Computed example of a mutant assay.
Amino acid sequence: MDNSADAPSQGRRLWRWSRWQVIGIAALALLALAISSLFADDGAHTLDRGLMLALRTPGTTDDPLGPKWFEDVMRDMTALGGIGVVIGSTLVLCGWFMLRRRLGDIAILAGSLVGAQVLSAIAKFFISRPRPDLVSYEAEIYSASFPSGHTLMATVAYVTFAMLLAADVGDRRSREFLLGVAWVAAIAVGVSRIYLGVHWPSDVLAGWAIGALWMIAMSRLIPRLQWRHG
Rank of each mutant, 00 (worst) to 15 (best):
R49T: 02
S36E: 08
Q226D: 05
S174I: 09
S174F: 09
W214K: 03
A212E: 02
R220C: 02
V198R: 04
S192L: 09
R12A: 14
R172T: 12
F70R: 12
L99A: 15
A209R: 05
V189C: 08
F97P: 03
Q21C: 11
S219C: 13
L14A: 13
F126I: 14
L164N: 10
S143G: 09
L55S: 00
I23P: 03
L55F: 01
I122A: 14
A154P: 08
V86N: 02
C94E: 05
V184T: 15
A79E: 13
Q21S: 15
A7G: 12
V159S: 08
D48T: 06
G190Q: 04
S18Q: 12
G207Y: 05
P64S: 11
G149M: 03
S136Q: 11
R12Y: 07
L91D: 11
S136W: 07
G149K: 00
L103C: 14
L31F: 04
A157Y: 00
I216E: 01
F97V: 09
A107F: 07
Q10K: 15
G50H: 04
Y142E: 15
T57C: 07
H150F: 01
T57N: 03
A116Q: 03
R101M: 13
W20G: 06
M163S: 10
M98S: 15
V86I: 15
F177H: 14
I35M: 03
R129P: 04
P67E: 15
L14I: 13
V198Y: 07
W17A: 11
G211Y: 00
R131K: 10
L221M: 04
I187E: 02
L213G: 07
A139Q: 04
L28M: 13
P201F: 07
A34V: 13
Q117H: 10
E71D: 11
R193L: 07
I23N: 03
W214S: 00
Y142P: 09
L196H: 05
T151V: 09
A212H: 03
V189S: 08
A7Q: 14
M163K: 06
G24N: 10
F177Y: 13
D203S: 01
L225P: 01
A157S: 07
M218R: 01
L99C: 14
R129S: 12
L164G: 12
A166Y: 00
Y195A: 04
H45C: 00
Y142S: 14
D76C: 11
L119Y: 09
L55Y: 03
D72V: 12
R173K: 05
A182N: 00
A154T: 07
L51G: 03
T151Y: 08
S36T: 11
D62A: 14
S37T: 02
D62H: 04
T151A: 10
G197T: 03
V156G: 01
P147N: 09
A121V: 10
M52E: 02
G43K: 00
V184I: 12
Y137H: 15
T61R: 10
W17H: 15
